[in-house]
Amino acid sequence: MSQASGVLHEPFTSGVRQREATIFAIWIFLASELLLFGGMFFAFYTYRHAHTSGFDGGARHTNLLFGAINTALLLTSSFAMSVAGRALEVKRAALAEVCIWVTLALGVGFLGVKGLEYVQDLHEHLWPNTRFDGADPASRIFFGFYWTMTFIHSCHLLIGLGFLIRLGIMARARVLEANSDSVETTSLYWHLVDVIWIMVFTTLYLVGK
């Protein structure tokens, strides 16, 4: 079975071509997402270079346990997502559907853990306002990045969850195969959000510890 789109849409006349175009287009978008997050990483590492001790002091306050659990959750969700796409290709629709729901559940789990972590962070006065708990002012900047990066990442994840729900509904209605383009694009987006999380995790939880 070759990789062709399930249903043709205007202006395409060939399913193979439409699939090719879809994959290409979503990758262009992903490249652009890479630059969006890249800007934050650039700022982060530039600052860290200038204020190493302050930043690393901040990093010592992030909760490695929550971070690690969340990373594992997302890696697993990516695994499930990837199986979903492949299962659909070999016409194992039931497996694909299960995997989509698993991905979704893991994503929700991530947000749940993140929420717990945020609560704890607030409790420890890690919101970088004047009541911030930390001696070095640069630690406050670190937490500026912490909240911004994790929050923007979570927003992306939320959007991904929206797309997953859509896939789940399609799978229920047994029209997933007709919409295999959507499976493909959603899963690429989802994976990218996970790749970004790997970098966020390493940056905020690991390098400074």
Binding site: T46, Y47, A50, H51, G54, P137, G144, W147, T148
Partner: peptide, 15 residues
């Protein structure tokens, strides 16, 4: 209130 470009804390407006 994320002090990302705040020079008072060591942030850099040029960023």
């Amino acid at each position: 209130g994320m002090p990302i470009f705040d020079a008072r804390l060591g942030g850099d407006p040029l960023m």
